[in-house]
Simulated assay, not measured.
Amino acid sequence: MKQIFITVFTIFLIGLGSNDLQAEQSKRLGAWEVHYNAFNSTLLRPEMAAQYGLSRSATLATLNISVLDATAPGKPAQQVEISGYVMNPLSQQQTLDFNEVIEGEAVYYLAQTRFSNLETLRFFITIKQGDQTQELRFHKEFWAN
């Protein structure tokens, strides 16, 4: 259990090395608290990238999302259906292919996307569970490491 916590905590805190020096962000969407983080994949340790089937590249971003029940603090993360796309400044879209990771009570979703140096990407994420659907939208600037 301690190893699971350390792994999840490490992935969320990878953002500390990102360009704006902030950890994951969160938004309240309906009854959910959605934690999200997007960062350059070179910040992943090689063994961690291999463990989760992620690639490392100077122009590859990694997205990490976890969904919590905001009405029940302390309740584990929830399994949801998640899909989305990312849009570059030229309005070109790339579909995000999310992989669900379950480690004990931790549930999170990982995806990767390409970017150009000094490019701001806009993320459009749809989260569904039963009859509840929410949209997560945010933007992030990336540069090649």
Rank of each mutant, 00 (worst) to 15 (best):
A70Y: 10
N117M: 01
S55Q: 13
R28Y: 02
P73D: 06
V80A: 13
L118K: 09
E47K: 03
T10V: 11
A144L: 10
K128Y: 10
E105Y: 07
Q93K: 08
Q3T: 05
W143N: 11
L60D: 03
S55H: 06
W32S: 07
E33G: 00
T62G: 00
N117R: 02
S66F: 03
L13V: 08
F124N: 14
K27D: 10
K128C: 14
N37Q: 13
T126G: 12
S57H: 10
W32F: 12
T10L: 08
G17M: 09
I125E: 11
E33L: 01
E81Q: 15
L136H: 10
T126L: 09
S57L: 07
N99Q: 07
A23S: 05
A72P: 01
Q132D: 15
V86I: 03
T71L: 12
A23G: 05
V80Y: 12
R56E: 11
F138N: 09
A23F: 05
T7Y: 03
S18M: 07
P73S: 07
K2S: 03
Q22P: 00
V34E: 08
K2C: 01
H35M: 11
S55N: 15
M1S: 08
V107A: 04
A49L: 00
Q92M: 06
P76H: 13
V107N: 01
V107D: 02
M48Q: 06
L29C: 04
L13P: 07
G104M: 06
H139D: 14
Q112V: 02
Q51W: 01
A106E: 13
L43E: 02
A31M: 10
A23M: 03
W143V: 08
A50E: 14
N145L: 12
A49F: 01
K27S: 15
V86A: 14
L136T: 11
T10S: 14
A106I: 10
F12I: 06
K128M: 14
L29F: 09
N64L: 06
L90E: 07
K75A: 02
T10W: 05
T95A: 09
M1P: 01
L54P: 01
H139M: 04
S41A: 06
Q93V: 08
R45N: 09
L21V: 11
T95P: 01
L121V: 05
T42Q: 14
T10Q: 11
A61G: 04
L121R: 13
I65A: 08
A58R: 07
